[in-house]
Amino acid sequence: MKLDHGEILRKETELDTPKIVRFLIGNPLIMKEMAKHIPDTGSYAPVTISGDEGLDGVNLPYDKMVSLLDPYGNPDALAIALYLDSKIKNFLRESAM
């Protein structure tokens, strides 16, 4: 899913900037596996990636799933979260090429 946060700001200023987009991406099957161990996973998945175009280029910050689930202390869920984080990192790296 794509949400254009910049559009709200552009309407106010009638300029072409800022360009800020929020993406919700993920595989429901991976979320299901984490939810077996931590039901609250639905609060964090799908993963949110924010994209903004600045003077230094495009920034794509996101919260790593492992950091969101770490406080629950469930090693099985954390292993899945690490896998998901690596998939997101690879996706972003490949998308930038």
Rank of each mutant, 00 (worst) to 15 (best):
D16Q: 10
N74K: 10
K11T: 01
I88Y: 07
D4H: 06
L84C: 12
G26L: 04
D76I: 00
E14P: 15
L82G: 12
L29T: 02
E12M: 12
E94Q: 11
N74P: 09
K64F: 05
G73T: 11
N90G: 12
G54L: 13
Y62I: 03
S50V: 15
D40Q: 12
K64D: 03
P75A: 01
G51C: 08
L9M: 06
I30E: 11
G42D: 04
T41I: 04
P71L: 13
K11R: 08
I49V: 15
T41P: 06
L78D: 07
K89P: 00
L15D: 14
A35W: 00
S86Q: 15
Y83C: 05
V47A: 02
I20Q: 00
P28T: 00
S95D: 00
I20P: 01
A96F: 01
D52E: 13
F23H: 08
P61E: 04
D40S: 05
A96H: 02
I80V: 15
A45T: 12
S43C: 13
K64V: 07
L24K: 11
E94K: 09
N90Q: 13
K64E: 11
D70P: 02
I30V: 15
E33L: 14
P18S: 04
F91E: 09
L24V: 08
L24N: 10
E53M: 12
P46W: 04
L84N: 14
M34R: 10
A77R: 00
D76A: 15
E14R: 15
M65G: 06
G51T: 05
E12Q: 11
S67V: 03
T17Y: 02
L69Y: 06
P71F: 12
G6Q: 06
Y83L: 10
G26A: 04
M1C: 11
D4N: 09
I8H: 05
K11E: 05
T13Y: 04
I88N: 03
R22K: 11
P39K: 12
L84D: 11
L24D: 04
K87E: 14
V21N: 01
I49H: 08
A45N: 08
S43G: 14
I38A: 14
I38E: 07
L3P: 02
T48N: 10
G42K: 07
A96D: 05
L84T: 11
E7A: 10
M97A: 14
E12D: 04
D40L: 02
P28S: 05
R10Y: 07
A81I: 05
S95C: 01
I25C: 08
L78A: 10
K64P: 02
K87T: 10
I38V: 07
L29V: 00
I20W: 04
L24C: 09
L15V: 09
L15S: 14
L55S: 11
I88D: 06
L15Y: 06
